[in-house]
Design a protein around this nucleic acid. Structure first.
Lengths: 218, 218
DNA sequence: GTCTATACCACGATAGAC
DNA sequence: GTCTATCGTGGTATAGAC
């Protein structure tokens, strides 16, 4: 093979196989052969597997986070001095992901599946790595949501943010589980975004649970 | 060790380790030693690992699904001839899970983490197995939701059900990712249920997305 | 019914030729 | 910069003693 270009081919193959089989389930051997490179030569570019994993995420998340931050800042400028609306904040968080696919970026769809799956990865070190590299973005958005929803306590907000990320992650990762629930193939990803947005907006805006409501349940 | 009892001990250990490290990440060797049994003796009870996995799920899901069905039927009887309300249907689906923990059932919490994680497992055969064994319950609830929300198209309903299961699965599976978003430990599981319910009810009840709303987004 | 011993294979990682 | 060869580890699964 030619020189210097194998690094990108390996990253592409790793991204695809991590999304398909999970980070732990994809071996360096098959990544190598999918990249039409040799498993051994991965160790020229990265010392250990974890470094390859880190770079697979970095390559996508750095521009993604930048776009999110930029959209959020723009939304806040537009609505100033009032805080950005709930819709605007969620849009800044989510739209760049779907844009990745709409744009037809090579491997973008695979990366979204991978990202959605990662929040529930068994391997803690993976989540820790994401937190280290991109936790600032999460905090920035949580604060913006807090300003958009001043009636929620800090805790209620955090919990709802958690639910929202769950719905989002599940949607991004869905392929097999999709058919279990819906019974047919999904439409376009932008269709999903249009459906997800009102669901999340309504959920965030719901009246808070009363602290003790014994409603037949648990 | 004594006779006949190792089967249950192995199931307990497998449940715990699958929840902790994922089905693929937990080895039969460590399951055996955690159960104070021998890895080899697992093969007396099950032919291959997949069969052990199936039984770990079955042991919990059969009574769980039965309780769900029963609660749903009760809710429908109560509200007849009107369909059961959205809240009642969601409660029948979700409350039995949390009840498993409230009841203090040994290993119940671990199983919920495992279940939540499973929808996003890389291994397709796992999701397929769940579908085969418990798909009927999912369909039953989807239909009940459809009767509670007649204004939604079949497709919109299915998509929102998907979002709701995502939020639920994420909540069940959350341990590491929780701290990333919220920054501290969760309260009791029943507290979670009380918070999740209004979020889902509002999300399901949201006005449907207009079929073509070019809203700055993707 | 449970154990030990082991076959066999794929994994991550290293060394060194080219 | 990329390849082949190989090491040690640990995975699933089997055979057979007890």
């Amino acid at each position: 093979m030619a020189r210097g270009e194998s690094r990108e081919r390996i990253l592409d193959a790793a991204e695809r196989l991590f999304a398909e089989k999970g980070v732990g389930g994809a071996s360096l051997r098959e990544i190598g052969s999918a990249a039409e490179a040799n498993a051994g030569s991965i160790y020229f570019h990265w010392k250990v597997k974890a470094e390859l994993v880190r770079d697979v995420f970095r390559r996508r998340l750095e521009p993604l986070d930048a776009e999110r931050m930029q959209r959020l800042a723009a939304a806040e400028r537009e609505s100033a001095p009032a805080p950005a609306s709930l819709e605007a904040v969620l849009d800044a968080l989510i739209a760049p992901m779907f844009a990745l696919v709409e744009r037809g970026e090579r491997g973008g769809a695979a990366f979204l599946r991978l990202l959605g799956r990662t929040y529930n990865e068994p391997d803690r070190s993976l989540v820790r790595m994401l937190h280290r590299d991109h936790g600032a973005t999460v905090e920035r958005f949580r604060d913006a949501l807090g300003r958009a929803l001043p009636e929620l306590s800090r805790e209620q907000l955090a919990v709802r943010f958690h639910f929202a990320l769950g719905a989002l992650a599940h949607t991004l990762a869905s392929d097999a589980s999709w058919q279990l629930v819906v019974g047919r193939r999904p439409g376009s990803r932008s269709q999903w975004l249009r459906e997800l947005m009102p669901f999340l907006v309504a959920g965030f805006g719901a009246p808070p649970a009363s602290p003790r409501s014994e409603r037949g349940a648990a």
